[in-house]
Amino acid sequence: MKDDANHFNQENQPIPVLENRPVGVKEKEREGVFVNGFICQNCGLHFNLFSWKANRHRSDNTYCPECGSKGSFIHYRKVLSTKRVRDNNSNDEIFRNVPLEGSQLMKDSIVISKQKDSK
């Protein structure tokens, strides 16, 4: 993925990846970069979830995006980084891995952009 890759907000204005900051986990809560791999024991779907928290995603609190079942997964985890602060130059950051290079932005996307302070 290139640094200049863009996503688009609701006004169809580009949002550069490096400016599209995470909003769910504050940097002081970050534990690193983790990828959790799941194999659903109900339908067989393989899927990955990325997180800045080591134990946020577990088999007992994850739902299969294909069949909707909960709790019946083979669960793997890989630590991509133990850095507690975002490193814009690291290939281990989530924004370097998602979206996968060559992915197409889908029309049902909802992109929420934060307004910059004009102070």
Rank of each mutant, 00 (worst) to 15 (best):
P22G: 08
H75V: 09
V85G: 07
V111G: 00
K107L: 00
F8A: 02
R58E: 09
D108T: 08
G32K: 08
E27P: 06
M106N: 11
Q10H: 08
K26P: 02
S69C: 15
S69F: 04
L80Y: 06
S109N: 13
Y63D: 15
N12P: 00
G102Y: 02
H75I: 04
K53S: 05
T62Q: 12
L49V: 10
V25R: 13
N6P: 00
S103N: 04
H57E: 09
P99I: 02
V25K: 12
G71V: 07
D87R: 09
N48L: 13
V17S: 13
F38Y: 10
P99Y: 01
E19F: 05
T82V: 14
G32L: 08
E66L: 13
K2N: 14
D4K: 12
V17R: 14
F95W: 11
R96H: 06
R77P: 01
C67M: 10
F47R: 09
C64G: 08
L80P: 06
C64P: 05
G68D: 14
G102S: 04
I94W: 03
S69H: 13
I110E: 06
N97Y: 00
P16V: 01
T62C: 11
H46K: 14
S81Q: 05
R77C: 06
P22V: 05
R58F: 01
R30V: 07
E11A: 12
E101C: 05
F95I: 12
N97K: 15
K83F: 04
Q41L: 14
G71S: 10
Y76G: 10
R96P: 02
I74S: 07
N48V: 11
M106F: 05
V98F: 09
A54I: 04
K70C: 14
N36D: 12
G71Q: 08
N55K: 12
V33Y: 06
S81T: 05
I15R: 01
W52I: 06
R30A: 12
C43S: 10
F73P: 03
V111H: 02
F38N: 06
Q13N: 07
N97W: 04
D87N: 15
K2T: 05
N55G: 12
M1N: 10
F8M: 03
D92Y: 08
F38V: 07
G24D: 13
V33M: 11
A54D: 08
L45S: 13
C40H: 01
H46M: 09
D3I: 02
H57D: 11
V111E: 01
L105G: 02
L49D: 00
I110M: 03
L80E: 08
R96E: 10
I39D: 06
C40W: 00
L49E: 02
R21Q: 14
E93L: 07
S59V: 03
D87E: 12
R30D: 07
E93H: 08
L105D: 07
V79S: 07
D108I: 01
P14I: 00
E19D: 13
K83A: 15
H46E: 09
V98D: 12
H75L: 10
S59K: 14
L45V: 12
K53V: 08
